[in-house]
């Protein structure tokens, strides 16, 4: 069987890509769509460097057969636009050295904070248990998560104020 066409939403845009049925989504995102934030490291689902969000939840693209993404909503860090509160928190706290693990960390934290806006430290550690940072920035990454929670709360408050102002 030859390559097949797979359709999904990538960072808000519908896409159609060619892939072989036994290729992983990681290869397709990099080769067909030019995304460099998903990075193959272990290829075993362990390290988190290849993380993307599938319907809002983190998954390892290195072990996700590409055709399983059919009809799904895929988000990579490119789709966050650079000024997302989690990204701003990483910059402020300087929660990286080489930056290799950072996209996976940011996406995992984004999904966590959407589910649990005020996680305690234990919850943060558990959520990030499968994301490895070879530079050992873990403490800073936890701080960045806490800072991102604050920034997101501020953003929500401003939104409420804006909508209150526009209706009054």
């Amino acid at each position: 069987m030859a390559a097949m066409e797979i359709h999904f939403t990538l960072n808000g845009q519908p896409v159609a890509v060619q892939a072989e049925p036994d290729e992983m989504l990681l290869e397709v995102l990099r080769r067909e769509l030019g995304l460099r934030s998903v990075r193959e490291t272990c290829g075993l689902g362990i390290c988190g460097a290849c993380t993307a969000l599938l319907n809002g939840q983190p998954i390892s693209t290195c072990i996700l057969l590409a055709p399983l993404a059919e009809g799904c909503d895929i988000t990579t860090v490119e789709g966050l636009g650079g000024r997302h509160p989690v990204q701003r928190a990483f910059e402020e706290v300087q929660a990286f050295q080489c930056g290799y693990c950072t996209p996976g960390m940011i996406l995992t934290i984004k999904a966590l904070l959407e589910e649990q806006p005020e996680p305690d430290e234990e919850t943060i550690r558990r959520a990030l248990g499968g994301n490895l940072c070879r530079c050992g920035c873990y403490l800073k990454i936890i701080q960045a998560t806490q800072r991102a929670a604050v920034l997101l709360a501020e953003e929500r408050r401003r939104q409420v104020e804006r909508s209150a102002a526009s209706t009054s």
């Binding site: 689902g45 988190g48 998954i59 995992t108």
Partner: peptide
């Protein structure tokens, strides 16, 4: 089991 990523899949 494993990490949230594995459990999502």
């Amino acid at each position: 089991v494993a990490s949230p990523r594995v459990r999502n899949q």
